[in-house]
């Protein structure tokens, strides 16, 4: 489903964000992307979105070489992705409903289907009944859950999450992780970047550990090898 083939990324100053990264994540697979700040986690996710392209190597998602994706096909491809951003990336002048409905709106869903899907997604993250509220009056945790609802509302085949539990308490973090697990069980490919090792350790999923842009071959957490 997601394939990285010898992917390297060098920025203009010569700084290497990723070095020769190769891995494959199957449909229905869930993996944690771990590593310190600046290890290249966000860069790797951005290459799947794709808001960045590799300096060398290939990123293939669902059979599509992302570099070859035309600008006409790019929006269609992005509609198959769900992305949870670290900083929520919500529209502050739109209600919770409108924020969550955005991926459906751009995909051309009817208002009736949009309403059903949005309410279902908000129910999943425990925000049903807050559709009309503006994001500004929500807590950081609630805003993060709106971001999660928006990411899953279109039932994506690939779900990317950049520090999705950064602003959540342990209980909520666990529930969001459970939600991601459910999605992977439904056939979505889920890749979660996190530096919350305690949380990651609670789930027995594949670990992709990045260090200075390199993917370590085997990763261990709490003495358990998940790679």
């Amino acid at each position: 489903m997601i394939q990285f083939e010898n992917v390297s990324k060098k920025y203009a100053g010569g700084q290497a964000a990723l070095q020769n990264v190769s891995f494959e994540l199957e449909r229905g697979g869930l993996a944690f992307l771990i590593g310190h700040s600046g290890a290249g986690k966000s860069t790797l996710l951005r290459m799947i979105m794709p808001t960045e392209h590799p300096s060398s190597g290939k990123v293939i998602v669902d059979g599509h070489d992302l570099r070859q994706l035309s600008s006409r096909k790019l929006p269609q491809y992005r509609r198959t992705l769900g992305v949870v951003f670290q900083d929520h990336q919500l529209l502050s002048d739109r209600s919770v409903f409108d924020n969550v409905a955005l991926p459906l709106r751009v995909s051309g869903f009817s208002h009736r289907d949009m309403g059903r899907r949005v309410r279902a997604a908000l129910d999943k993250v425990g925000l049903l009944g807050k559709e009309r509220i503006m994001p500004g009056v929500l807590s950081a945790g609630e805003r993060q859950r709106v971001g999660v609802a928006r990411a899953v509302v279109n039932r994506p085949s690939v779900l990317l999450a950049d520090e999705p539990t950064g602003n959540l308490d342990p209980e909520l973090s666990g529930e969001i992780m459970d939600l991601f697990e459910q999605f992977s069980q439904m056939g979505a490919c889920v890749l979660i970047a996190s530096h919350d090792l305690a949380l990651v350790a609670r789930y027995k999923h594949r670990l992709l550990s990045l260090e200075h842009g390199r993917l370590l071959s085997g990763s261990h957490l709490g003495g358990e090898n998940h790679a």
Binding site: Q76, R79, T80, R117, R119, R155
Partner: peptide, 14 residues
């Protein structure tokens, strides 16, 4: 019911 709705609705093909 909510899970069922999300499960049964197809995502748009590319």
């Amino acid at each position: 019911a909510a899970i069922l709705v999300v499960r049964t609705m197809p995502s748009p093909p590319l």
